[in-house]
């Protein structure tokens, strides 16, 4: 049997290369090429011009959106990490295997519910005359305006990413060798110092990976800022949709996309480096 030319081997290896090559790598590469194309009379023409880059990066509205998106994604990653940790800790250390498995399954459920419908439900729940304000009103508070603000967008981001962050952190925490924790107690560490000196460093990878995913998802999300954040000021994703859907300025939307991909790549690479630093 000649390993090199085996039809069998190629049959199993090729589908991914062909499909993801033709419909993932090529479209993204095409997006990069498109940033240099010319738009004339609402039609794209192959060209090599820098106008799209100059026009996009030269506008204040782009940079406002860029910093807003970056800031919100970073904030959401930090908040989600902090909120998720006590829950992941409880799941990993205070629950039976059965309960933990069931809870993790429940946390997967939201991924299979339309995020749009959930955002719409928040619109209703948080509305000025909605249930939350009704409850607050009955104890003499409010009504508060919660929608169309950074707060509204954050509620959306957290709804999107919290389950995932809890899952990653629980995995990270469950994988810690219990002997390490007991060894810390045995050497005189109080429960709090054990948490800081042993559990957090040992679960570092899971915590960072959770935060990275939270960052990536919020950075690209358009539903939360659009339906709960009020779409003004726009985030990068809203900018892309506006530029694409109104008129045919696809190349400029592609420039925004390239900037997003670059930012995500650099941020994730840096964060992963920290997450795996000092690991074999």
């Amino acid at each position: 049997m000649t390993e090199r030319t085996s039809v069998y081997r190629i049959f199993w290896r090729l589908p991914l290369i062909l499909w993801q090559g033709a419909f993932f790598v090529v479209p993204v590469a095409f997006l990069a090429v498109m940033t240099f194309w010319l738009v004339k009379n609402y039609r794209m023409e192959p060209d090599f011009i820098l106008t799209n880059w100059e026009k996009t990066l030269g506008r204040g509205v782009f940079w406002d959106a860029y910093w807003l998106t970056l800031w919100r994604a970073a904030l959401a990653a930090v908040i989600a990490t902090a909120i998720a940790f006590p829950a992941a800790y409880t799941l990993a250390f205070r629950m039976s295997e059965r309960t933990r498995r069931f809870a993790l399954f429940c946390l997967i459920v939201p991924f299979f519910t339309s995020f749009l419908v959930r955002a719409y439900a928040w619109q209703v729940i948080l509305a000025e005359g909605g249930p939350v304000n009704a409850v607050l009103g009955s104890i003499g508070l409010g009504p508060y305006v919660m929608l169309n603000s950074g707060f509204g967008a954050m509620v959306g981001y957290l709804t999107l990413v919290l389950p995932l962050v809890v899952i990653f952190q629980t995995w990270g925490l469950s994988a810690i060798d219990r002997n390490l924790i007991e060894a810390a107690w045995n050497l005189g560490a109080t429960p709090l110092r054990t948490l800081v000196r042993v559990i957090l460093p040992a679960a570092r990878t899971g915590i960072f990976v959770g935060a990275i995913f939270a960052f990536i998802l919020t950075f690209g999300d358009f539903v939360s800022p659009f339906y709960l954040g009020g779409s003004k000021p726009p985030t990068l994703s809203i900018l892309i949709i506006d530029t694409t859907k109104s008129g045919q300025q696809w190349p400029r939307a592609a420039v925004v996309s390239m900037m997003m991909i670059l930012t995500l790549f650099l941020t994730s690479a840096a964060a992963l480096r920290i997450a795996y630093r000092g690991r074999g």
Partner: peptide
Amino acid sequence: LVWQSLALFPF
């Protein structure tokens, strides 16, 4: 205690 797994902190 000296542990069977040694439980040295890898980080």
